[in-house]
């Protein structure tokens, strides 16, 4: 899979651009304090709502805070939320999906009916219900989005496991007496992995969008912390004098999500070359 992906990377310029874009995003998020030209939270009332300039690349907001620095630190919060949600829902979803798909029977029924019920809630509605109890904040955002995005993972992994477990090599492993956990780890996992990576990339994109939506309505990362949703929300009141605040926040979200969608497509092509250009 990795080899095929790397080969695609060379021939597909869009995929290459998305991969580079994501690498840049991750590096910016990690090294935010070194890269940001200003402190993202320091107010300077002499330069409020300044247009983009040499000193402030993307201008300033209503408190005179440097917008570029806020976006750079916003990337950090976005990465924390995206990565945590993806890892958590990926781990939980994979574990449950493998158990349900491999054992079948009652374990499968219970898991899948529970997933169906969870999926009866639109993502953001379930997330908001949880935040009502947990209170808003970075941790609550991560927990709420994880709960909302895990059921899709469970369903995807389970259906792949069911396809793989009927393959001849799994039957052969069973016949020669390999224990179920070993079969799951060595024979089923590698063939489900591709799907997990694709779903992971999509989950990351949904988590970034989800965090932005929650922050936008004031229930995600609480201000004054920089987050993409907060930046768009803050810019909303100054749309006429300083449209660059909301515009730059939204464009950043869009670019990051776009990169993840393209990456998910690229990985899908690498797993299943027949679907390419479809």
């Amino acid at each position: 899979m990795l080899g095929e992906f790397l080969r695609n990377l060379r021939s597909n310029r869009v995929l290459l651009a998305a991969t580079v874009g994501l690498a840049v995003f991750i590096l910016i998020a990690i090294f935010a304090p070194l890269i940001a030209p200003h402190d993202p939270n320091v107010q300077n009332l002499r330069v409020t709502l300044d247009p983009p300039s040499h000193r402030f690349w993307l201008g300033t907001d209503e408190f005179g805070r440097d917008l570029a620095s806020r976006l750079i630190f916003g990337a950090r919060n976005s990465l924390i939320v995206g990565l945590s949600v993806t890892l958590l829902s990926g781990l939980i979803g994979t574990a449950l999906g493998i158990v349900a798909g491999y054992l079948r029977g009652i374990a499968d029924t219970v898991t899948m009916r529970a997933a169906d019920v969870m999926m009866a809630f639109p993502d953001l509605v379930l997330a908001l219900g949880l935040i009502a109890v947990l209170g808003s904040g970075l941790d609550s955002t991560i927990i709420a989005l994880t709960v909302a995005l895990t059921p899709i993972f469970v369903r995807m992994v389970r259906s792949r496991v069911i396809t793989v477990r009927t393959e001849a090599y799994v039957a052969a492993a069973k016949l020669i007496g390999v224990r179920p956990p070993v079969i799951a780890a060595r024979h089923i996992m590698p063939n489900v992995l591709g799907g997990i990576v694709v779903q992971g990339a999509l989950t990351f994109a949904f988590a970034v969008l989800g965090e932005a939506s929650l922050s936008f309505v004031g229930l995600g990362v609480p201000p004054p912390a920089a987050s993409f949703g907060n930046i768009v929300a803050e810019g909303r009141d100054y749309m006429i004098q300083a449209p660059w605040i909301s515009i730059s926040g939204g464009v950043t979200i869009m670019l990051i999500v776009l990169c993840f969608l393209v990456l998910a497509d690229g990985v899908r092509d690498a797993i299943d070359p027949y679907q390419r250009g479809h």
Binding site: V232, M239, S246, M254, V257
Partner: peptide, 17 residues
Amino acid sequence: LIGLAMPSFWFGLMLML
């Protein structure tokens, strides 16, 4: 792709603007 990646609230804000 752009439609999928664009946050709807931001698109709304731009339309409003």
